[in-house]
Amino acid sequence: MNKIEEAKITKSKKKRRRLLFRSIILVILLAAVVFALVSNLNKDDPEIGVGDQAPNFKLKQLNGTSDSLSLDELKGKGVMLNFWATYCKPCEQEMPYMESLYPKYKDNIEIVAVSLDTTELVIDRFVDKYQLTFPILHDNKGQVLDLYNIVPLPTTLFIDEDGVIVDIVSGGLTLDRIESYLKKIQPD
């Protein structure tokens, strides 16, 4: 009798061990598959997305009084970070909209436009043409572009006062849309 019971106990132990072993193997394999699929899906996505902290950078400023500007200096203010170039038509179209909204929001929101042109000359001429007063930065090596993984121009990021990215918009914007985005990042 004793022996049979003993055998039963060993058997149920064995069974439990087997179930545990199988479960662990299956979970590991499932995790590997999920990892592969998620990684593949995110392959083309920007590394920096909505909800992330906007990484800091420091670039030469081509207009205004200061020589350079870093993103960290703007903490406490909302930031509209616009990536553009003089040869890009939709960028050119939205510049006057940004300029027209700038005076109204400049106390709470900084509009920062990062140009990807090679030469300062073309940017200077462009700034003169449109009488731009918000800071124009020059990313001639494309480092900040690389940091933010920006592909199409223009791309605009809307960053709140804590440095968190609220919206990322690819392509040109209309006056109304810019204003609605600005309202979202306006500190209370």
């Binding site: 170039a85 003089t86 040869y87 990807l116 000359l121 001429r125």
Partner: peptide, 20 residues
Amino acid sequence: IDQYFPDYYLDEGEPRSETK
């Protein structure tokens, strides 16, 4: 230099640059 077009083309009679 009043204007510089690195990659010049005419866009509806308007001189522009295609790239940088």
